[in-house]
Each structure stands twice: as structure tokens, then as C-alpha cells.
């Protein structure tokens, strides 16, 4: 586990470098991977209690990738904590029968808590897990559910939001990666989702708002989480940029998913390193 901010920033940069490297070889959901990369690094490499040797350990924190298309950034963080070798991830990604692909699949990867891909499923499952933990008397573990902001358009998210609050699932932590962009355009254009935090607050949630690219704020948010025995579930609304750190990807719907050319890769790597140093 990394504890220092400088370590976490360095780890996040490595994750982004790995993402770009993969994106130069294969088509990945690079936009949403990059927007959530800082948060995911802190979550997996600082916050979560998780034993890579025992993915079914009862005392583990549970992680659900509700925005299932951010599979690459998840797997890279899991590789970083020793769940599997990073070389294997690169080799197997998007291959026939490989453990890693565009979405997470539990059939082949034991580090996937539940298979995801279709949006709007994770929060309900997370609520069920959180309720199950309480029923078992597990007061230590938390359930982290990472969603996108476009995903908030799914009605099932709000069914679960209402329910989790009603059942006082304080061991449930939702993280909304608010990168402002869906596959067809901005949330503003498409749905007018507006203030996500206010909506969760109205549903009885504890709401934390952060800049999802400032490691200090991410770490602070995790440090300030109420205990799992709290009554209200918590949502961390992380304001981010889709394709963060790469100028030609930022806020560009064409980079929801894709593969970079050699020239694009060179430019992206240069920019991402410069941004990390700034």
C-alpha cells in the first residue's frame, strides 16, 4: 500500500503511461480510463483493504466496476498491487480466451468481484453486497462502486440510490466519475444531469465533492469517509476530464474508445509526463 502523496502521484502516472502504451496496441476505452485513473490509483493502491493472494478473503473491501468499460485501468491497478503480472495483462488483453478485455469478466478473472459492462447495474449489486455484509456482522469491509456520470441516466441507479439510503448502508461508497461526456456528446447537451451531488443529497446520501485529478483531494476524501457502521451511504462526486492529460482526447467524444497511431502515442506520452511534472 502506498501512503505518501508523491508515491500515489507517481503510481497514477505509471498507470496512465501503461494505459497509453496499451492504447497504442489495442482499442481501449481510453477516455473513461484516463478520467478515473487518479481516483482508481488511490482507491486500489492506498484506500482499499485487499489481499491479492486471496480475492475471496472475507475481510476484503469489495470493488464493483459499474462503469465496466474502465476495465483496463482497473486491471492495471490490480496488477500494480500484485494480483497478476502486468506483462500477462498486456499479453492477454483483448485476445481470444484472455483474462482481460473491454469489460470485466468473472468467468476467467477471480479478481473481478462481479462481471460488469452494461451500465446501471453496479449500485444495486453493491447495495445487496453491503446488506449481506451487515447481515453477516462484517463491520469492517466497505463496498466501493465506481460509476460514470453518463451512467446516472440509467433509472436503476436511482432505484438503488433510494434503496441504499433507506436500508442505511453506510458501508456502501459510490464514486461517480463526472467527466461530463457520454459517447454521443456532453451530458449537458444530452441529459442536463446538472448537479449530481445535490441529487444524491436529496436521496439521503453523504456527499463528498472533489477534483478527481488532484491526488490531495482524492486522498482526503478517502480519509474522511465515515466508518462502515455509519447510517448514510457516501458518494464521492469526482469532477474529472474525459481523456485527461492528452490534449487531443480531452473532452473529445471520438476518444470514448479507440487506438492511437504511433505519432499520437508519442504526443500523448509527452503530454502526460509534462502534465505530471507541472
Amino acid at each position: 500500500m502506498l501512503t505518501e502523496l508523491s508515491q500515489l502521484k507517481e503510481a497514477a502516472l505509471q498507470i496512465k503511461v501503461d494505459l497509453l502504451t496499451l492504447c497504442a496496441q489495442k482499442s481501449i476505452h481510453i477516455g473513461g480510463d484516463l478520467s478515473v485513473a487518479d481516483v482508481m490509483t488511490a482507491l486500489w493502491q492506498y484506500q482499499m483493504h485487499y489481499d491479492p493472494q486471496n480475492p475471496e478473503d472475507e475481510s476484503r473491501d469489495r470493488f464493483i466496476l459499474s462503469k465496466g468499460h474502465a476495465a483496463a485501468v482497473t486491471s492495471l491497478n490490480q496488477a500494480a498491487i500484485g494480483c497478476f503480472r502486468k506483462e500477462d495483462f498486456f499479453q492477454e488483453y483483448a485476445t481470444n480466451g484472455g483474462r482481460f478485455s473491454m469489460h470485466s469478466c468473472k468467468l476467467v478473472n477471480p479478481f473481478v468481484e462481479v462481471s460488469t459492462g452494461s451500465l446501471g447495474h453496479g449500485l444495486s449489486i453493491g447495495a445487496g453486497i453491503a446488506a449481506g455484509l451487515k447481515r453477516k456482522g462484517n463491520t469492517r469491509s466497505r463496498v466501493y462502486v465506481v460509476m460514470g456520470d453518463g451512467e446516472q441516466c440509467e433509472g436503476s441507479v436511482w432505484e438503488a440510490a433510494m434503496h441504499a439510503s433507506h436500508y442505511q448502508l453506510g458501508n456502501l461508497v459510490a464514486i461517480v466519475d463526472c467527466n461530463g461526456l457520454e459517447a454521443d456528446g456532453t451530458l449537458e447537451e444530452l441529459t442536463g444531469l446538472d448537479d449530481v451531488g445535490q441529487k444524491y443529497r436529496a436521496f439521503g446520501w453523504n456527499v463528498l465533492e472533489i477534483n478527481g485529478h488532484r491526488m490531495e483531494e482524492i486522498k482526503d476524501a478517502f480519509d474522511s469517509l465515515p466508518p462502515p457502521t455509519a447510517q448514510a451511504p457516501t458518494v464521492i462526486v469526482a469532477h474529472t476530464v474525459k481523456g485527461n492529460g492528452v490534449s487531443f482526447m480531452e473532452g473529445n467524444v471520438n476518444w470514448h474508445a479507440g487506438k492511437m497511431s504511433a505519432e499520437q502515442f508519442e504526443q500523448a506520452m509527452k503530454e502526460i509526463r509534462e502534465k505530471a511534472e507541472a
Binding site: V114, S124, A127, I129, A131, G132
Partner: peptide, 19 residues
Amino acid sequence: TGIAEQNMVGFAAGLCREG
């Protein structure tokens, strides 16, 4: 879950995951 079948089924899946 109240009148929310999608949540009912997803929630049940979560309970299964915990045994």
C-alpha cells in the same frame, strides 16, 4: 425495494455474492 424490480434483482445478486 419498493416498486423497483431492476434493483430487486441486482440487490439479490449482491446478496448471493455474500453467500
